[in-house]
Simulated scan of single mutants.
Amino acid sequence: MKMRTLFPVVPAALAISLALTNANLADAQVVQINSNLQPDPLIVNGTSGGKLQSNCGNIADKANQVLKVTESLPYLRLTVESSGQPTLLIDGPGGRFCVLADSYSGGKPEISGYWQAGNYSLYVGDLSKGQYTYTLSISQQKTPKK
């Protein structure tokens, strides 16, 4: 995956505050993604933050969303929009990654590039320790629609 602002999350630190098991995914909204994403962008909403402190801000003890990528995709972009200071923790086949907002992405956590097939647990966190409504945009377009 091509990643702009990525910080690998220290697994030992996460293991202390998070036990990422199938039981933690039971309440997550599951979104299936394939090469024919409709609509594009696909928009998902939820509440960011949580009580668990991690290297990727405060997150919930359960994933907000699970992406089931059914086939390897040459390009997929995830963008989070929210008040506060949103983060995106991704736990998937390639490991765990923390995506933070930067000035290049307009202050929104964004990740794009190649995605291999598999399940990705998404935790929308917040550095400000608050909980805010967020919008997650999932797109296969290289340029966002205006």
Rank of each mutant, 00 (worst) to 15 (best):
S103F: 05
K108R: 15
Y75C: 03
V66M: 05
S35T: 01
Q38E: 13
L42W: 06
G84K: 04
S112N: 07
I43N: 07
D91K: 11
N119P: 00
I16G: 07
D91P: 03
Y104S: 06
T133C: 00
Y114K: 10
G125I: 14
T21A: 10
R96P: 00
L25T: 09
N64L: 12
V30G: 02
T135H: 10
T133G: 06
V124F: 09
L78V: 02
K62D: 10
D40H: 08
G106P: 14
V99M: 07
T135P: 00
S121T: 11
V124K: 03
I33Q: 03
L25Y: 10
L37G: 05
D40T: 06
E71Q: 11
Q141W: 09
E81R: 15
T70S: 14
A60N: 14
Y75M: 10
G50Y: 09
L88V: 09
L136C: 05
A15P: 01
V31L: 12
Y120R: 08
Q29K: 12
V44Q: 15
A19L: 08
V44G: 00
S54R: 05
L100W: 08
K68S: 14
L88H: 09
P93C: 05
N55A: 08
Y104H: 02
Y104A: 13
Y104E: 13
Y123T: 13
S54W: 06
T70P: 01
N24G: 11
Q32K: 11
F7N: 00
I43H: 07
G57W: 03
V30Q: 07
G107K: 01
Y123L: 15
Y114M: 08
T79G: 05
G95F: 12
G125D: 13
F97Y: 14
K62V: 03
Q32C: 02
S48G: 09
P74Q: 03
L52C: 05
A12H: 06
S35N: 00
I90A: 01
G49Q: 06
Q29I: 02
L122F: 04
L6T: 00
C98M: 15
I59C: 06
K51V: 06
T47C: 00
